[in-house]
């Protein structure tokens, strides 16, 4: 279950269902822009696992799964077309495993995510700085992995379009960021000619309900250190509950609320090099696993601008 969460996460960086993917700095979900012609890239590793999951609204364990864990090796990048317009990408390799039972884990390259992040508004407001972001995302599967093998499939295999509106306010080193995202998910094709949801479907196509998500983060942000707490919610707009003792299915109603922390530290001695780390925990869910995740990564900023500038990710507040 969690896996599907993870999967989901993976599936849509935008969605950020996956704890691992959601929390890094300088992503599609934070209020940080790269400067013009700066390219930030780096690997990330994330791990998450769950023992309990929600079967519909009923929380349970499953002795035929034990603990389900997901590892993610992700390469992410962020390029500044201008200081107000960035493009981002992410491509994870995902590996799943169940500690008990007969189901084998799966692994493979998952979905490529592409984002365009635009900051149309950045203005002084009171003692702080207020900024607004519009973010559009596209993700699609890069391999023909199996989606209909939850909770051990590595993704849901849908092509997703996301639209996000985000606002950020910073006073001194304190900031708050809030965002809402709508994700459209395409139908998927599974390796079965019929399946049962709440009724029989004599087709191999599955209608994937769209997803709404909200993300709220607050904490300390300066040029060299970001430390933030995160509250995130994902709600599937439609879908159905897992029946008693049934397997999960890609078009389940997967909802999750999770809390997390994220830290990003930029080394002062090596300009452009930063370390990130964090973790998160699902506090409430439906048809998902109650996962605990942690992640870490190293990012480096390459400056393609003719004149060397000092920054890499700048917060909106100190970029002006």
């Amino acid at each position: 279950m969690k896996q599907f969460i993870k999967i989901l996460l993976c599936a849509a960086v935008a969605l950020c269902f996956f704890p691992v993917q959601k929390a890094e700095a300088q992503t599609d979900i934070d209020a940080i822009m790269m400067d013009k012609k700066n390219f930030c890239i780096g690997p990330m590793y994330g791990h998450s696992s769950w023992k309990n999951y929600w079967e519909g609204t009923l929380k349970r364990e499953n002795l035929n799964l034990g603990t389900v864990s997901t590892q993610m090796f992700n390469v992410m990048g962020n390029y500044g077309i201008s200081s107000r317009l960035n493009v981002l990408f992410g491509l994870p390799y995902v590996k799943t495993k169940a500690s008990a039972g007969t189901l084998h884990g799966k692994s493979g390259l998952q979905d490529l995510s592409l984002w365009i992040k635009w900051m149309p508004v950045e203005t002084s407001l009171g003692k702080g700085t207020f900024s607004v972001y519009a973010i559009g995302g596209l993700s699609f599967p890069t391999t023909n992995y199996v989606a209909d093998f939850l909770p051990l499939s590595i993704g849901l295999h849908s092509t997703n379009f996301s639209a996000r509106l985000m606002a950020d306010y910073q006073i001194g080193h304190f900031f708050v960021t809030g965002s809402g995202t709508y994700t459209y998910r395409s139908n998927i094709t599974i390796d079965r000619t019929s399946y049962y949801t709440t009724e029989m479907h004599l087709t191999n196509k599955v209608d994937m309900p769209d997803v709404a998500s909200f993300n709220f983060r607050t904490g300390y942000r300066s040029g060299h250190l970001i430390a933030e707490a995160i509250l995130a919610n994902n709600t599937t707009l439609g879908g159905f509950d897992i029946r008693r003792n049934d397997m999960p299915f890609p078009s389940n109603k997967m909802n999750a609320t999770d809390v997390g922390v994220n830290i990003k530290y930029t080394l002062q001695k090596v300009p452009g090099l930063s370390l990130i780390g964090g973790g998160n925990y699902v506090v409430a869910g439906r048809n998902v696993g109650q996962s605990t995740g942690y992640y870490g990564g190293i990012f480096y900023v390459i400056d393609f601008a003719p004149k060397k500038k000092d920054t890499h990710q700048q917060s909106p507040a100190n970029s002006k």
Binding site: G136, L138, F161, S186, L202, T203, V206, D207
Partner: peptide, 20 residues
């Protein structure tokens, strides 16, 4: 890009019909 995305969404209906 935005127009393209919207047009794509409008053009591909998510309706699924069974084979019979």
């Amino acid at each position: 890009i935005v127009t393209g995305v919207i047009a794509f969404q409008l053009s591909c209906s998510k309706n699924i019909s069974g084979r019979t």
